[in-house]
Every structure is written in C-alpha cells, then in structure tokens.
Design a protein around this nucleic acid. Structure first.
Length: 294
DNA sequence: AGCCAGGCCCATT
DNA sequence: AATGGGCATGGC
C-alpha cells in the first residue's frame, strides 16, 4: 500500500499548491484538512464503502472515485476535475476552522472531525437521498439507495449510476415501497414526477437566496425544513443553513440546554455560526456521533 | 423486545 | 403559526 503510493508520487511532476495532479489521480499532501473516513462518515453522503485496508470507494451521480489514504497523504483516483470539485479541494478549510475555533462548542468538535470537508454532491441525488433519510437509520438509508441505483441507475463499469428523474418518474410508489422505502415511497414517486415533468426546476435553486430556496424545496413532497437544509448544504453548498436532526438536538440539550423547538434551535445556532453554520453543523454532528462509538 | 433513526404530512387549534 | 398523532422499516 505504502510503496504503491510512493511509486505514484515519483511518477508525478505537476504541482498545484498542496495538491499534486497526475493524469488520473490527485495527491493530497497535507492531511490537516482532509480525512477520508471523516468526510464520508459524517452523514453527508450514503453511496460509499470501505473497500480495503486504507481504501474507500465513493460514488456521486454517474461517477466513481477511489481514495487511498495513509498517515501521510491521500490519493484520489478517477476523473480528477470532478474529484477536485467534489472534495471541495479549492477551499481553505484551515481558514474556516480558524474562524470557528473561537466560537462556542467548536474546539472539541474540531478535535474529533478536523478532517471533514463538505462535499459538492449532486443536487438531484441529494434531494432523493435526504427524502429517504427522514426518520431513518443511516445503514438502512444506504441500503435503500443502493437498491434504487441497482434498479433504476445506468449500469456503469462495475457499479450503477444514480437514477435520473426521468427513470424514477417511470415507477410508481409501489416500486419504491418494494425497495423498502416505507412511508416515503409516495414522496419519491411524487418528487421524481415533479422534476421529470418540469414542475420543479433543480437548477433554479442556484439562483435563489437561501431562504427562498428552502421554501421552494419544501414544495416537494417529502421535503421539510430539515431535509431542505441538508439538500442546500450538501447539494448546493449553502453554508448559511443548519440542519437540526436528533443528534443536533442532543448537542443543543447538552450545551445551550432548555426547551426549544427545532425552528428555535436552528435560528439560535445560525445566529451563533452565521455563514459558517453548515460547517459548524457537520463538526458538531460528527463529534456527537463519534462520542457514542468510543 | 422495545427504542430509535439526519422528520414529514396532515388535521386541529 | 404552532402543536400533536401517525407512520414503515430494520439495526442495535
């Protein structure tokens, strides 16, 4: 493993900042702001797997990337331009963490998950994925999405693409029920139809201010305030949102305390972390979940 | 066995 | 605008 990484480095001449770009791979030399396990295991993505001792495979849209990471560096294989955007490699997370470090409850969370980055995932994939996520366990969410891709996604070389809205609109709720989506089945059928028929424009969200975008997303069946925030954060990289889920509620109870509705918590937390709310949320979410794992 | 999970829909107030 | 009941499924 280690020798393989070294061999690749020797072949590689190009250098771009902390990144070194090869023909079919990117090398991340500085792991201060990059930890593949933390990035994938912080609940922002469901299509990934640990595929080796130091190897993870991750999928987005119709792409597949492989990441090998040891103590010193990470190597990302696949479409490198796609990977550079996907892993948000052109953003300075050191700066973000520095700005957050002095704010409440951040120091400890950053110690847990300092290698987290917010992926630039596909908006449509995030819409469907987070509709499925509602009141559900992460392992089961992964299973449902896996079956969805195998059933309706384009067959690629050794994996399946995420299905298009058109492909999904071709099935009714009975099909999604058969995948194990439970009471979210009609939400999936309805949302797929809305997008496929043009009643909802996934790209229009890019041009909307965050508040308006959230309302627009909530017009989709199965999308409420929390799911809309997740879609905005992970699919559109809007970081002035704060998805309030059960884990964030635990954090809130243990820190700020007191009774508060989800909406009140969201407002208070955004007031605290401002335009860096999305990042802060991920650090807090990851930290809280790690804490219960030893 | 029962609780819980990256909550939402809908009726009621 | 705010609250509360109901809800499919399966990991732990």
């Amino acid at each position: 493993m280690r020798s393989l990484i070294c061999a690749i480095i020797l072949q590689n001449k190009a250098k771009a900042g902390k990144l070194r770009m090869g023909n079919e791979y990117i090398i991340v030399d500085d792991l201060k702001d990059f930890d593949i396990r933390q990035i994938l295991d912080c609940g922002q993505i469901f299509r990934y797997a640990k595929t080796g001792e130091n190897e993870y495979t991750v999928m987005s849209r119709d792409k597949r990337l492989k990441v090998m990471q040891d103590e010193n560096k990470a190597v990302i294989y696949g479409d490198k331009e796609f990977a550079r955007k996907f892993f948000d490699l052109d953003r300075d997370y050191g700066k973000i963490k520095k700005a957050l470090a002095s704010l409440p409850y951040m120091e400890e969370s950053l110690r847990f998950g300092g290698g987290i980055r917010i992926l630039n995932n596909d908006a449509w994939e995030m819409i469907i994925s987070f509709i499925i996520s509602a009141n559900n366990h992460i392992p089961r969410i992964k299973g449902i999405i896996e079956r969805l891709c195998a059933g309706l996604g384009k067959k690629m070389d050794g994996y399946y693409a995420f299905p298009t809205a058109e492909a999904m609109a071709g099935k009714n709720e009975d099909y999604y029920f058969s995948l194990g989506a439970g009471y979210r089945a009609p939400y999936l059928a309805s949302t797929a139809r809305a997008v496929a028929e043009g009643a909802f424009d996934v790209n229009a969200v890019y041009d909307m201010p965050t508040c308006e975008a959230a309302k627009y997303l909530c017009s989709l069946m199965g999308v409420g305030p929390k799911v809309a925030d997740c879609i905005l954060l992970f699919g559109y990289h809007r970081t002035d949102v704060f998805p309030v889920d059960t884990w964030i509620k635990k954090v809130y109870r243990d820190t700020l305390g007191g009774d508060a509705t989800n909406k009140q918590m969201r407002q208070k937390l955004i007031g605290l972390y401002k335009e860096l709310s999305g990042y802060a949320q991920q650090y807090l979410f990851f930290g809280k979940r790690e804490e219960g794992r030893g």
